[in-house]
Design a binder for these strands. Structure first.
Length: 460
DNA sequence: ATCGGCTCGCGCAA
DNA sequence: TGCGCGAAGCCGAT
């Protein structure tokens, strides 16, 4: 493997010598797409060089943290499309039920090389460590789901967006160069005799998985898959990119890309999205604002989970934030709600209830409302620690983009992470507060409430 | 309608 | 060591 190009997106996961095998295995887990997938491209190139067919393997586990029907329907819609797109190229897609590390080590016994993509949460890292340590052939990891590879951007936990921003912007250009034309496999793998599930049988697969909770699918609002992501993004470019910057705090509009569910499952490439926006005709402010969200803040969230071992724990918050929240632990809470009352959207606040209804009905929430929604849970919970737990649970249960680095960075932001102190007030202490009067001042919040009422009434 | 003050700590200039 | 400034705000003064 000494021939591997010196590409900062590549990393060897073990030091096994070259092995013989029936195929080259691309273990797809994070980057659930065929287009703009550098891990798949590397697997095809290596397969051609070795004179072997490439095979794509995917492990479907119902032990994924907080897995439910909503997430899995969306993911399986995407994987069905992946299987069909791979078949068009003569590549076999092997879907197996089970824990990813075990499934991949089993499949990998017949592989000359394993290529994997890169998710950033601790269970995804654990799977890759286990595969790297257990495989009898070389394992190469490819960074697939950020623009600037994490180690190139920064090798430490960044304090805030302002400290990461210059590092990202300095490097962005070189990682937005278009890849060459997609490589075709010389040796097709469709006829290889490898057992796997039928990825097109979504109801059958869902029935066989033990999924938590009564959280319904939201296919009426969001259908999974790269084709659907591209269609939606084209609509965004046509209609919503130009007012994007001006309407960032206008949740009554739909001038947002809604790419986060597709990015979360790797169904669309952030590099491709960034290139499209750079080429788009729009005001420079909107172009910069979108790239700020897509690249700077999204990759700040990745930096956060990579360098904060307890990214999902209250104790991982900055000292100043924990200290000020502790100093206000005994403050009177004018409103207190249980997690069940919050989940049902039964509070005194119609704006908050609308946000919760949007989340339940569609699996999505406008960014500005996500902040307001989170800040109120802090205000209405018996303690910041309980608020933190409630927010993560609701986030990961209902959002299609739950359980993403952005989920953990977003919840931590509610409690002061990546933010600065502000004037001291009850309950919040020096952590930034948001209020209903602020919503009324800054946007047409009544129009947002009406929009959500229509949507949740029409909910499938 | 707009403006300033509030508050902590990082990173750069000196 | 000093200083400017920051992921999305609030509030009161003008």
């Amino acid at each position: 493997m000494t021939h591997l190009p010196p590409d900062p997106r590549l990393r060897r996961r073990n030091h096994q010598p070259p092995a013989s095998g029936r195929f080259v295995l691309y273990w797809m887990q994070q980057a659930q797409r065929v287009e703009e997938n550098p891990a798949l491209a590397l697997a095809i190139a290596e397969a051609n060089r070795l004179g072997l067919p490439p095979v794509v393997g995917f492990a479907l586990s119902d032990r994924y943290p907080e897995a439910n029907r909503r997430h899995y329907t969306f993911m399986l819609e995407g994987l069905r499309e992946v299987a069909a797109a791979l078949a068009d190229q003569g590549i076999r897609f092997v879907l197996r039920l089970g824990e990813p590390d075990r499934v991949v080590l089993e499949l990998g016994r017949q592989a000359a090389l394993i290529v994997c993509d890169r998710g950033y949460l601790r269970h995804q890292r654990r799977w890759r460590r286990a595969v790297g340590g257990g495989a009898q052939c070389p394992v190469v990891e490819v960074e697939t789901d950020v623009v600037v590879p994490t180690g190139v951007a920064s090798d430490k936990a960044e304090y805030a967006a302002r400290t990461l921003r210059p590092k990202i912007l300095r490097q962005m250009d070189r990682f937005l160069q278009p890849a060459g034309p997609p490589l075709r496999p010389v040796h097709p793998s469709l006829d290889l005799d490898i057992a796997g599930e039928d990825p097109a049988d979504i109801p059958g697969l869902l029935d066989r998985l033990r999924l938590a909770g009564p959280v319904a699918a939201v296919s009426g609002w969001f259908t999974g898959g790269t084709g659907e992501a591209r269609r939606r993004f084209q609509l965004f470019l046509n209609r919503s990119l130009d007012p994007y910057a001006a309407h960032a705090h206008q949740p009554q509009t739909d001038h947002v890309s809604m790419m986060s569910p597709y990015l979360h499952f790797g169904q669309i490439s952030p590099v491709w999205l960034a290139r499209r926006v750079r080429e788009a005709e729009c005001g420079p402010e909107s172009r910069a604002a979108f790239l700020e969200e897509l690249v700077v803040r999204r990759e700040l969230a990745v930096n956060f989970v990579c360098h904060t071992p307890d990214y999902d724990a209250y104790d991982g918050l900055p000292d100043w934030a924990r200290e000020t929240l502790a100093a206000h632990a005994a403050d009177t809470r004018p409103h207190l709600y249980t997690p069940a009352q919050l989940e049902a959207g039964q509070t005194h606040d119609p704006y908050w209830n609308a946000a919760m209804a949007e989340m339940r009905a569609t699996g999505f929430m406008h960014n500005y409302m996500r902040m307001y929604w989170g800040k109120q849970v802090l205000a209405w919970s018996p303690s910041p620690r309980e608020a933190f737990a409630t927010l993560l649970a609701l986030n990961n249960r209902y959002f299609l983009d739950g359980r993403d680095p952005n989920s953990y960075a977003g919840v931590a932001w509610i409690f002061g992470r990546h933010d600065r102190p502000w004037p001291e007030r009850p309950v919040f202490g020096k952590v930034r507060a948001m209020t209903a009067s602020g919503l009324r001042r800054k946007c047409d919040i009544e129009a947002y409430v009406r929009k959500v009422a229509l949507r949740s009434a029409a909910s499938p």
